[in-house]
Design a binder for these strands. Structure first.
Length: 510
RNA sequence: CGGGGUGUAGCUCAGCCUGGUAGAGCAUUAGCUUUGGGAGCUAAGGGUCGCGAGUUCGAAUCCCGCCGCCCCGACCA
């Protein structure tokens, strides 16, 4: 008897929806495609924010805030950029409502002279500021970041993975030359890799996107790709070297040391609330989410087993004291986040609420524990032994001393588990495209697990690349990226038989 | 936007084919019992049956239109 009605094996998409709901992460809002993020989900995002914000600042960036609304004309400047986003922009056209025939409508007389676009990303409005702020090589590099909400009018939305409105961080920088900008692009990618792996316990493969998967307006796009438990890839973060495309379009120039004018080289990079979807599909199980301790808003939850009897007061006092003592311990370089759940609800129900949310350690303190100075607890990442819930007992003193180790070991176990799944499900033994077709092309109604393929190719461009894309699309596959770690010698291109120049990852993707 | 599914109580769903005053389980509330772990019994509260228009004496049920959600596709740094 699992805590969720649906198991991953039965129906992975349904299971995902169930975790989002049952772990109380978020729910759909009355606004189409937008979600209400609830405290446990928002707590995850706040932890991600805190960690990323620290690293972004440590690497020399400063936070700014640019407007939500961007003049429509700004998008007309970079041709590829507008083409990429035109189909999913929400546009503000009026500034006043009026009651017309009893219905509240935009006042026809209050139409804006120039429509405003709700930002789908901020390259254009930040580029405009760059053009004004950057005059001399002494102004470079200019490295900024902003935390913001974004709107993209998506055809099909999924909680956390693709919503019309989402929260993200977007870094934007300008540099004197390509080398400096490329160093920045790779620095951002490395921060994302590290946060995903070290903080979210979500192993990823960092690499460069092929030409046809680039950000509109980018010269080069890099991504980190994570493997979900259904074998699909999730693009969990991106970093773009924009070359001088936006500098040309928006006139971002500076006077160089020789007195001449040069175009700035810009970058942009971002991660979003989509990471939470990645955490769910990396660490979730049939009892709900398993939240990695480093990111868990509450790491140790204490459930007092109250029964409406005189000794309740004693149990509560014991729990409060335990909570305070745990708060004085530390894990991951910060005080342990412990919490006593005093909600007026049945203890067993509270236990299962925290199991579904995935609190890493859940203590259940009864009168006997309180009286004898013990702690009875369950470990969420290894909840069951067979079908049964596995419970542990330590003395209070031992539990407090070991809490750091328990949390850090849980983090490592979650990472190791996910890393083993990633490593063992990337196949590198496809000799021909026919082998790929045979593996991915068979009937997949049963939802059989298929991981990723690592193959070599000749990195075609233009029409030849499009043809590769079409062949892959027939199998519902896409090229994810060319991993940073490349072999020293190459064989033949799996698509054309020509000499290969690069190894790439192919997978189904979210 | 195209194809399929679906929408009935907070949740999961039955009822619809064959029209006749709205159901179950869980949850909620109250009482009693129970108490090392998702308790039992009894009782109660809770629904414009997604929205709108139609057929009919009568519509959750039949017809038409619209909307939301889920899946697949298209699309999607």
């Amino acid at each position: 008897m699992h805590a969720l009605r649906v198991t991953r094996a039965e129906d992975f998409p349904e299971w995902y929806q169930a975790v989002v709901r049952e772990a109380d992460l978020a729910e759909l809002s009355p606004t189409r495609g937008c979600m209400i993020i609830k405290p446990w989900g928002m707590g995850l995002w706040e932890r991600i924010q805190g960690e990323l914000d620290r690293r972004i600042k440590e690497s020399g960036h400063e936070n700014y805030y640019f407007p939500l609304l961007i003049p429509l004309s700004f998008f007309a400047k970079e041709a590829e950029h507008v083409e990429g986003f035109a189909k999913e922009m929400a546009v503000v056209t009026h500034h006043r409502l009026k009651s017309i025939d009893g219905a509240l409508k935009p006042d026809p007389e209050a139409e804006l002279a120039e429509p405003l676009v709700i930002r789908p990303t901020s390259e254009t409005i930040i580029g405009d500021a760059f053009a004004r702020w950057i005059k001399s090589y002494r102004d470079l590099p200019l490295k900024l970041n902003q935390w913001a909400n974004i709107m993209r009018w998506e055809m099909r939305t999924r909680m956390f993975l693709r919503t019309a409105e989402f929260l993200w961080q977007e870094g934007h920088t300008a540099h004197a030359d390509e080398k400096d900008a490329m160093d920045e692009t790779m620095l951002a990618l490395e921060i994302y890799r590290s946060v995903a792996e070290d903080f979210l316990a979500m192993p990823v493969i960092a690499g460069e996107k092929p030409e046809n998967e680039r950000f509109p307006g980018a010269e080069r796009t890099y991504s980190i790709e994570a493997m979900m438990q259904d074998g699909k890839a999730l693009q969990a973060g991106t970093s773009h070297y924009l070359g001088t495309h936006f500098a040309e379009a928006q006139n971002i120039r500076y006077q160089n040391k020789d007195g001449g004018m040069s175009l700035a080289h810009t970058t942009s990079w971002g991660v979003s609330t989509r990471l939470i979807g990645g955490v769910i599909m990396t660490h979730g199980d049939d009892d709900g989410l398993r939240t990695p301790p480093a990111v868990a808003p509450r790491q140790i939850v204490i459930v007092p087993m109250l029964r409406g009897k005189p000794e309740d007061a004693q149990i509560l006092e014991y729990c409060t004291g335990l909570c305070a003592a745990l708060g004085a311990a530390s894990a991951f370089g910060a005080p342990v986040r412990a919490f006593v759940d005093t909600k007026d609800a049945r203890p067993a129900d509270k236990r299962w609420d925290w199991v579904r949310r995935g609190a890493p350690i859940i203590c259940e303190i009864g009168p006997r524990d309180a009286a004898s100075g013990q702690v009875t607890f369950i470990k969420r990442n290894a909840l069951r032994e067979g079908e049964k819930i596995k419970s542990h007992t330590l003395s209070r003193a031992d539990f407090i001393v070991q809490s750091t180790g328990l949390l850090e070991a849980t983090q490592k176990q979650l990472y190791d588990e996910a890393k083993a799944r990633l490593d063992s499900n990337i196949r590198g033994d496809f000799a021909t495209f026919a082998d790929i077709e045979k593996y991915y092309g068979t009937n997949d109604e049963g939802g059989e697990f298929r991981g990723w393929a690592r193959v070599q190719w000749s990195r075609p461009t233009g029409a030849a690349l499009e043809e590769v894309g079409t062949r892959l699309k027939a199998l519902k596959l896409t090229i994810r990226n060319a991993p940073k770690a490349q072999p020293s010698t190459f064989g033949k291109c799996i698509f054309s038989g020509a000499p290969a120049v690069e190894e790439i990852l192919i997978a189904r993707a979210y």
